[in-house]
Amino acid sequence: MGVRGGGHQHDADRRAGLVPAPGRGGGAARRARLRHRARRHRLTPLEAYCAAGSLRRTADLLHLHHSSVVRRLEQLGRALDFELTEPDGLLRARLALTAWRLLDD
């Protein structure tokens, strides 16, 4: 885990759009937009987890209890045959979603 204001988790949050790049405004507005998108477009738990990078943030985005998110991601991980809550699993899921979105366009 990173330290507030730096580190790997902060970098991952920035790439996911949860933390602004330097000079791009507050992260709270970005998180609010993600929450709105989650409600309006029925963001899936996998998409939310890939965007948030954290089980608790995912639960917040989807308005679910974190144990519900854990259970859903465990089910998906079993179906995909890799652990989504491990860094490599999260990376694989992000790459797969990106490829799927590119092919869907």
Rank of each mutant, 00 (worst) to 15 (best):
L64S: 02
L64W: 13
R78P: 09
G53I: 08
R37S: 09
L80P: 07
L84V: 08
A28C: 00
P45Y: 01
L73I: 11
E74H: 14
R37Y: 12
R71Y: 01
R57T: 04
R24L: 05
L84K: 06
G53T: 09
R30M: 12
L84E: 02
E47F: 00
E74C: 06
H10Q: 12
A29S: 15
A48V: 06
A29Q: 15
S54P: 07
A52I: 03
A59S: 04
A29Y: 08
L84Q: 05
P22Y: 01
L73N: 10
W100T: 10
Y49V: 02
G7R: 14
P20T: 05
L76Q: 11
A59Q: 03
G53W: 10
R92A: 14
P20S: 15
A28Q: 11
G23L: 03
A32W: 12
L102V: 08
H8A: 10
E74V: 13
G23P: 08
R101Q: 13
H41Y: 01
A51C: 14
G77I: 03
G5V: 13
T44H: 09
D13N: 15
G25F: 08
R92V: 04
G53N: 15
L46K: 05
H65F: 07
A16M: 09
R31W: 14
A99Q: 14
L46F: 02
R56G: 11
A51M: 03
A51P: 05
H41R: 09
P20H: 11
D88I: 00
T58C: 07
R94I: 02
E86F: 06
Y49T: 03
G25I: 09
R57A: 04
L34A: 13
W100S: 14
Q75S: 13
R4A: 14
L102Y: 01
H41G: 10
R72V: 00
L91A: 05
S67M: 08
R71V: 00
R35I: 03
G5R: 12
R24F: 11
R15T: 07
E86S: 11
D88M: 01
D13H: 13
R94A: 12
A21G: 09
H36E: 07
G23V: 04
G26N: 11
P22K: 08
G26C: 09
G17T: 01
E83H: 12
R30D: 05
G23R: 12
A16L: 10
R40S: 11
C50I: 08
L76V: 13
R57D: 15
G89R: 09
T98Q: 13
L73D: 06
E47W: 01
D13M: 04
G26S: 14
S68C: 08
E47M: 08
L97G: 11
R4K: 15
G7Y: 11
R24H: 14
T44S: 15
E83F: 12
F82Q: 06
A96R: 14
E83Y: 08
C50M: 04
L97E: 07
L97C: 11
A12P: 00
R101Y: 03
L80E: 13
A52W: 00
L46H: 01
L73E: 07
R56N: 14
L62T: 00
